[in-house]
Every structure is written in C-alpha cells, then in structure tokens.
Nucleic acid binder design. Structure first.
Lengths: 342, 342
DNA sequence: AAAGTTTGCGTGAGCGCTCACGTAGTTTAG
DNA sequence: CTAAACTACGTGAGCGCTCACGCAAACTTT
C-alpha cells in the first residue's frame, strides 16, 4: 500500500506552507516565480497528485459533471459522449454518465442523485422534461446544458439542430423528386412533441398535400428489433409507399432489412432515409442516405458551454443551433416524371 | 441557491447525534430499530442526501471506479460500458470513463490520473500493458479487473473470452466447409500478441495446412475507413480468397462493403465473418456471420468482480472465461465438394 | 522620509462526513 | 447479588484540501 502524498508533505519538503503549494498547483498569484518552480519541482519529485475529493470538499467544486442520457447504445450517442469527454479531459473534468431508458421519472431522480453527488453541472440529452422543470433545477451552482432540445433560461442553455425544419426540407425534397407516399418510422411518444413528426407533416402541408396518418408509425422502442417489426407493419399497411423516413440511422438500417424481408428492393422499390450519419451508414448495403447530425460537435459544444456557465454563472447564454446536412447515398432514388404526372 | 442539508441538520432535527444518523444511513448496527426509523423519516422529510465527496474523504472510499478503454465508438464497447454501468448503478457506484486511443503510454498516465482521483478500483479494457506492469498498479486499495485479456494476480483478475481458441475453431470450421484460402483482416500491433492472429494460424496448423502470410493484413486502425481500405488491398493481393475473417463486426461490415466495391458478391464469391454480434450485425445485408462475444455480460461481471475485490482484498480471484458462440448468417456460405477434392 | 501600496508568504478554520473511542444503561452469567 | 458483557448512543479527531484572513518585507508615491 503506497502511502498517499499530501499537500503537507510537499509543503514540508519544499520548505513552504501548505497554502503556497496550493498557489503553485492552482496557478494563483501571490507567489514568486522562483518559489513556484521550486514547489513544482518537489511535486514532480514526490509524485504528488492532489486529491480530487479533498479539493471538491474545500472548494465546493467537484470538477465533475453529469450526463443524463436515454441510452448509450446508439453510436450517435457514443459520438456525443466522445465529444463531451474529449473536451472534459482537456480541462480536467470528469463525466458521470447516467442512463434513464427514456423514462421521465428516472430523469428527475437521476438529476437529483447527481446533485447530491456534487456535480458542477449537468448535460441533459433529449430530455422529456419541460422547460419549467429543467429550469427549476438550473442554478448558479448547477448550470445545465440541454442537448437535442431547444431551451434557454438563466444558467440553462442548449445545443440543438433543427430536426423539424430539416425533416420538412427532406419531405419537400422527396416530393420534389417524385415521391408521393412517404412513410415515417418514428419513436414512441406524443406525436405533438416529436420534431421528426412535426417536420414531416409541415413538409406535406407546405406543398398543399394531405398527410395520411397511416403513413406515420411509431415503434414501441428505438431498438433495431422494434424498428424492424414496425417497418413491416408500416409496409404491410401501405404497400404503395415509395419512401420511408426513419427516426435515426440504426432504425433505418433495420427498416431496410424489413423491406428486404418483404421482398422490396431498396432503393428501386422503396427509398430509406435515416438521421445521424453514424459511421456504418456509409458502409451498409445499400449505403444509407441520411441527414447528418454533428454529434461529436454537439458533445464538444455542450461541454464548452457548460464550462462557460460554471465559470460565469447567472448569464443567459444563447442556444446554439447546428446545421443538418443531407447526405445522399444509395438507399434513395428519385421517382420518374411518370409519377409526377399523377 | 438551495442550502445544502448536512448530516448535522438531520441530527439536530431528529434529536440524535451525527453518528447515529450515520449509523442509520449506512445500515450499521449499534442503533435501535425505533431510532433508525425516526432518523430515516427525518431524512426523507428534509430531503437530505449525503455528500459523496465528504463520504469519500472520511472513509477513503469514493464509490467511484475508473474504466480505461481504447475508444467508445464500437457498439461492442458500448455494451461493455452498459453492463458495467448497469451493475454500478444498482450498488451506487460511479464510473469514470477514460479513453486512450489504444496508446500504451496513455494507459499508464490514465491509470495514474485515476488513482489520484481516488477511484476505488479500475477496469482495464484490452490493455497493451503486460501482467507485471498492471500488477504493479494493483493493490489492496486499488483492485483491477482486466477485460479481454487473461491476467491474474493478487487484487487483479480478468474477464475474457478465448478468442484464440474460437478463431482456431472458426478456421477449422471454414476449412471443413470447403474454404481453403481464408484472409484475415486484423488490427495493428505485434502479430505475436494478437489472439486473433494466433488462433488463425493455429487453425491452419492443426489441420496440417500452410498459412500464407499474404492472407493476413493489418489495418492501420480499427475504424471503418481503414478496414475498407485494407480489405481492398487484401483482396487485390489475393484475388482467390473465398473468405475473410475480420477483427470485429464493424470492420467486417466495412470489409463486405469493400468486397462489393471490388465486384465480389458476399457470400457467393467470398464469405465474411466478424466478431461481437453487435445489434446491427443481424440487420445489414447480407446479415453478418459472427462470433458472438457476450459484451454486456463481460461488463457486468467485471463490475461484480471489482466490487468483490473492493470488499475483500488481497485474495486471488480466478479469471473468468466466457464462451464464444458462432452465429451463422447470410454472409457465409460453404464451398462445394469440388473444392475439397483439391 | 513618512505614508501608502503591492508582493509574497503563513495561519486558522472548516467543508461533511466516518472512525475510533468513550460511556451510560441494560442484560446475562456464576 | 455482583462482575462481565452487551446495547445504544455520543464525542473528538481528522480525511486533504481551499478560503479568508493576517502580516511582514519591498516597492511606490508625494
């Protein structure tokens, strides 16, 4: 058992006071350059590492933030985590990751738990909570960054993409390229609260077309099996669909699989579109057309914003809106003029 | 700013001493059932949550463990993390995740950093470090569980699968089903240290066949682009391969893509096999034949073992070896007798 | 040259817990 | 009926830091 070297050991060894060592490691002033060098040298020599726990206790800053996320299996989520963690590591912060399986109450409980664990801030991914509830948690001592949802309040900001508008554009694009009957494979939940659904409907409406509610189908879960099953139902119910817009790339891959199972060729019989542009999207067959969400960047920016808010609280930081880009690949095909004349 | 309720507040309110409150929340004895109930009631009433930091300071147990992993992008790794975290959450432990990009020195530095952050234990995934180095970190105050590598020492154990043996069996199976020229798409590193390569060679040797070193190709990286590129080179160099064994499912998917790009049909012209059985493997086209690694279970067991070691140190815990199962899907096809007569 | 200002350092307190004791009151053993 | 052994609490110390001071020495200013 290695004895732990404390700040007092360093102080004694360097012949200075505890506080002077503290000044050296925290780059505070009130210490001469000469002393600082000497202290840093002894720190190096003794292999001293300050205790995160003690620091947290004394300063009321744990250098830890919490991430509350539905699940971590989707590679797009992993990208967000990676962005967050990359940023966090460079500034010496830790991340507690907590999964909620998208259960609302679990989110609240998790946030409370994180507070009691003295986190300095929280990143909430795709929360189900409303602005008021989230804002009630946000505090000068607990800034919150919400990801994938647009929110703003004191000590609360967000990093988002405009899924609704991007989906509307996508629908307009699909219709413009000859599609008429476009299915939507989406997640469970109240349709009024799903940007994916709202944008889909707006797309049709903006072109003066009717939306057939049979074309919208919500999987019971965002996993691949549910997506596969639901796509089969969707296609069975609407055999004349020429395109399916999935909720994300993972579900889109399962949707393509389901189409194959139903004897449909992608993209000749039916086009499939996903969201995220996860790394496999370009490698599956057919390669998946997708709306690229900059997940890594979202994670990075979330951490950056959170750090800003920790440093300077009580300011209202404007939400960040990142662009979504349509990446055309082999899973989509335009319909010929014949269809347009219809 | 909500004032933090401390243990002293609870003590005062319940009319007992600090220590009695501590006894109540930690289920220690030396407290009557009646008092315990009363204390727990006031805790509930005041909404008291003990500070993880203070607890850690006082007890020298931070209830936090560290995970050192190469990257988190592979869904198989996410599964390990999920298993670890699921287990951790049920016992109130936190996990610090640190990525190293598979750099050896980063591993050492990361372990040191985690130690200074007072973690109670460490899980090392696919480490490059040798037994001696890892064992030198392991300590009664810092048990270590190594995942995907077989190691054992005091306060050090491992959860693994026998990749070498499974690969050998796979090769034997492939040859048994008529394949003769089997390519290996593997990761960078010294071939002597890659179980994947060792098992591959053993498979041929056990059947008295020559291994052609041209059939082995190491991607410069484990990402999809490198796998795609390397597969093309592998196929170009050996146009007569009838099967490719990839390092994992992600790389196998990229390999299938590369084969298509080269005008080869999978599985008619060439079979492709991966490892892990990640969730998309069953949904890509053709569905991927793979050696299933129980990643979630590995994560769970790693956490369980670590908790055991934290509770009862200085015992040698035997390594755990989990089974690998061959999952046959559409990406493989046996070669006909014609090939066997060769 | 006296007074004010800055610079460089040290000291005590305390963050919120747990640990190792101490001490009454109660039960058990001989 | 008394000594020994619990049971149910309370008390002081301390984990390793930072914060808010305090206080000399050096450096300006008028």
């Amino acid at each position: 058992m290695k004895k732990n070297i404390t700040i007092d050991d360093v102080a004694k060894y360097a012949g200075v006071s505890r506080q002077t060592v503290s000044r050296a490691i925290n780059n505070m002033n009130g210490i001469s350059e000469k002393t600082r060098q000497r202290v840093l040298a002894t720190i190096e020599e003794l292999g001293y590492r300050p205790s995160r726990l003690a620091r947290g206790m004394a300063s009321n800053q744990s250098k830890t933030i919490g991430l509350v996320i539905g699940n971590i299996l989707n590679p797009a989520h992993s990208e967000v985590i990676r962005g967050l963690e990359t940023m966090a590591q460079t500034v010496g912060y830790n991340v507690f990751i907590r999964t909620t399986n998208y259960v609302r109450d679990a989110e609240i409980e998790t946030i409370n738990a994180l507070i009691s664990e003295n986190v300095d801030g929280i990143v909430l991914s795709s929360t189900h909570l409303d602005l008021q509830t989230v804002a009630s948690f946000a505090d000068k001592n607990l800034p919150i960054v919400v990801v994938h949802r647009n929110m703003s309040a004191p000590n609360l900001t967000s990093i988002t993409t405009d899924i609704e508008r991007a989906t509307q554009s996508l629908i307009e694009y699909l219709i413009g390229s000859g599609h008429r009957k476009v299915g939507l494979l989406t997640r469970p939940g109240d349709q009024e609260n799903i940007f994916h659904v709202k944008g889909y409907k707006k797309g049709f409406q903006s072109l003066g077309l009717e939306v057939n509610s049979n074309w919208i189908m919500q999987a019971s879960n965002t996993n691949l099996e549910a997506a596969h099953r639901t796509t089969k139902q969707l296609v069975t119910r609407n055999p004349d669909l020429t395109a399916i817009v999935a909720y994300n790339d993972m579900m889109a891959i399962a949707a393509m699989h389901a189409c194959r199972d139903m004897g449909l060729n992608v993209p000749d019989d039916i086009s499939v579109i996903g969201y995220d542009d996860i790394s496999v999207a370009a490698h599956v067959f057919p390669a998946l057309t997708t709306l690229r969400i900059p997940s890594f960047e979202i994670g990075q920016l979330a951490m950056e914003q959170l750090l800003e808010m920790i440093k300077t609280p009580d300011i209202i930081y404007p939400p960040t809106l990142l662009d979504i880009e349509l990446v055309l690949r082999g899973s989509t095909k335009s319909r010929q003029i014949a269809a347009l004349s219809h």
